[in-house]
């Protein structure tokens, strides 16, 4: 199956391990990606400080309109911030003819037009519904037996419409972890926000949010955290030193992308495809123990 891939800004930088691992994993599941030509940033969570609603919607409408003019496939967003911005714009413009006319007046400045012919989907939706649990199980030649994983969903990943999973009690992440042989632990804070885009500017407050998430993962016996969002991954992994300094804790919890774990389970190279060496807190030891390497 063919899709448009909207990687966004983070997957070329801080979330590179997500991109490196998702490509071979999706290929192994029979998916093919085409990049949206000359895409722009989605606006993420913080653009409202500099722009109105219509401007942020314009960013996303432009990306969708470019995709519409070049092909007829679903748009896949692996980053939860990109996903929520794109899915919201797509949904609102499809529903509201008046708003659509307004946006099309704006898009005309770049000879583009929003038609509303495509769907926007999170990568996790595509892995679960198009890849499918059976195919993932049969591709997982090197299952992560007994690896205790906290499947962190994050807040924007299934919101706002709950198109492929519950907005309150999501289960898809855990089902995907089970399919690759891992053992997802109970994790009540799996949807607690990590602080997202205001982390840098509200550091003290957001460190508290991260501490609660890490505490919960550890209390439930997790050996590592799996994520599907570059912002979550960055905040949960890179600020553990600061959490330790502030709260006198001793966190050293590896944080990986779900697709990195899938690449390992699919028998792929731990560096070249699973990109485990991209993680700052090394997950190799724990993962090698699980696969018996």
């Amino acid at each position: 199956m063919k899709y448009f891939l909207y990687g966004g800004c983070s997957l070329e930088a801080g979330g590179k391990n997500y991109m490196v691992s998702l490509e071979p994993v999706c290929k192994a599941l029979g998916m093919e990606f085409e990049e949206i030509e000359d895409w722009n940033c989605c606006g993420a969570s913080i653009s409202y400080a500099g722009a109105n609603e219509l401007s942020i919607m314009t960013l996303n409408a432009r990306n969708i309109a470019i995709a519409e003019s070049t092909g007829g496939y679903d748009i896949v967003a692996p980053c939860s911030s990109c996903y929520i911005q794109l899915v919201k714009t797509n949904h609102e413009l499809k529903e509201d003819a008046e708003l659509r006319n307004k946006i099309n007046v704006i898009l005309k400045e770049g000879n583009l037009n929003f038609k509303g012919s495509l769907n926007v989907r999170h990568l996790m939706d595509v892995l679960y519904n198009d890849g499918g649990i059976d195919k993932i199980k049969s591709t997982a030649v090197r299952p992560l037996k007994g690896l205790k994983v906290a499947g962190y969903v994050g807040c924007q990943t299934v919101r706002p419409y709950g198109e492929y999973d519950s907005v309150e009690r999501p289960k898809v992440h855990d089902l995907l972890l089970k399919a690759i042989g891992a053992d997802p632990v109970p994790f009540p804070k799996k949807m607690q926000c990590c602080g997202s885009g205001i982390f840098l500017t509200e550091l003290d407050r957001c460190l508290g949010l991260v501490k609660e998430i890490l505490d919960d993962a550890i209390a439930n016996g997790a050996q590592l955290i799996s994520t599907v969002c570059p912002m979550c991954a960055l905040n949960l992994e890179m600020y553990q030193d600061k959490v330790n300094a502030k709260f006198g804790t001793n966190f050293n919890m590896p944080v990986v992308y779900l697709t990195q774990l899938m690449a390992v389970a699919f028998g792929m190279d731990l560096k070249k495809e699973a990109a485990l060496d991209y993680c700052v807190i090394p997950p190799e030891g724990i993962i090698k123990a699980a696969i018996g390497g």
Partner: peptide
């Protein structure tokens, strides 16, 4: 606002 959308949903 951290933009978690919990209030909206």
């Amino acid at each position: 606002c951290t933009s978690c959308y919990r209030c909206k949903v």
